[in-house]
């Protein structure tokens, strides 16, 4: 029996280890390293209704042991995804989870409808982007706006809906409760923390867009704390992420309340990280005599 079998409500994964959106392309870029069917799932690069060129470079910089990025959701648009990326990705033998971003609530609805096709296992909804109809305030920072997006996506698809929470809020538990009440099936968390780095020689921000999303090992304690808080508040399953580099990190997230995890920045450092974690989890389950890894989900709360 597969002791890593993972069910997140309607979304069934062969194991709880996925790869985070934006760090793994569509999967194609990592195919040379290993058979992608070993992964629990792939959150593909963020998709928008229309093609986006993305931000001006420099788009990424390493600072203080983590990475700031400001790519600007560069992508070919949802039609390009459906016509050119999904036909290949659906045969990888792993759950293809499409990450979507919108400028308006309607955008999310239209994308959910278009992406409700065979080969897509679930939708992951990025709400860290600005709501253009509300002065550019990020959807994910206002509970009512986040709830509205969750409901809009739910109303336009039968696929499991994963709401990806932004950590750039005062009360993360409140955000979790809001998307749950809006109909979300699953929560993934956390997205990146907004950060900045300065080139002191030129007296300018290193990232052309000034600020960007900070990820990697330094954000792990923040992510873990937030998973812990949201687990206490909601009943829907959580996919935990934020600086996961190895098996121990993944186990910490699971014990804090995550039913699955996502490997992000670590894919840049060592593409084999997700496989190492799957192997490590199997070993952990065996060594501790568990019948399933599920026995340790939320362990610190008991």
């Amino acid at each position: 029996m597969n002791k890593l079998h993972c069910d997140l409500g309607k979304l069934i994964l062969k194991n709880p280890v996925t790869v985070a959106s934006g760090t793994f392309g569509s999967g194609k870029e990592f195919k040379d390293f290993y058979d992608l069917s070993q992964l629990g799932g792939i959150m593909v690069k963020g998709t928008t209704l229309l093609p986006r060129r993305g931000n001006q470079p420099q788009r990424l910089v390493e600072t203080a042991g983590g990475v700031i990025n400001s790519i600007g959701l560069a992508n070919g648009g949802v039609d390009d995804f459906l016509n050119n990326i999904l036909p290949e990705a659906k045969d990888y033998g792993t759950a293809i989870i499409v990450n979507i971003s919108g400028d308006t609530t309607d955008d999310y609805g239209r994308m959910a409808e278009k992406l409700s096709v065979p080969g897509v296992a679930a939708l992951e909804v990025n709400i860290s982007c600005p709501n253009v109809k509300h002065g550019g305030i990020a959807f994910g920072t206002v509970p009512d706006m986040a709830r509205e997006v969750a409901t809009m996506v739910k109303n336009n698809t039968d696929l499991p809906v994963i709401m990806k929470l932004s950590p750039n809020v005062t009360n993360i538990a409140e955000m979790g409760a809001a998307v749950e009440s809006g109909g979300a099936d699953i929560i993934s968390m956390i997205n990146t923390l907004i950060g900045m780095a300065i080139d002191i020689k030129n007296r300018k921000p290193i990232i052309k867009h000034i600020m960007g999303g900070y990820s990697g090992p330094p954000i792990k304690p923040v992510a873990l704390r937030m998973v812990y808080q949201v687990y206490k508040t909601v009943k829907i399953p959580i996919i935990g992420m934020g600086g996961i580099m190895n098996t121990e990190d993944a186990i910490e997230f699971i014990m804090a309340g995550a039913s699955a995890v996502s490997v992000g920045t670590a894919n840049f450092v060592d593409p084999y990280t997700p496989l190492n974690i799957i192997q490590g989890l199997n070993k952990y389950v065996e060594e501790n005599g568990l019948s399933s890894y599920k026995e340790i989900i939320g362990a610190v709360h008991r």
């Binding site: 934006g22 392309g25 993305g54 788009r59 840049f268």
Partner: peptide, 23 residues
């Protein structure tokens, strides 16, 4: 030359502008 993230084409960080305006 460019500052790179993954080196594999996945993160789309190290872009340069082409004459057609695309990256």
């Amino acid at each position: 030359e460019a500052y790179m993230g993954c080196g594999l084409g996945a993160c789309i960080s190290c872009v340069c502008e082409k004459t057609d305006g695309s990256y």
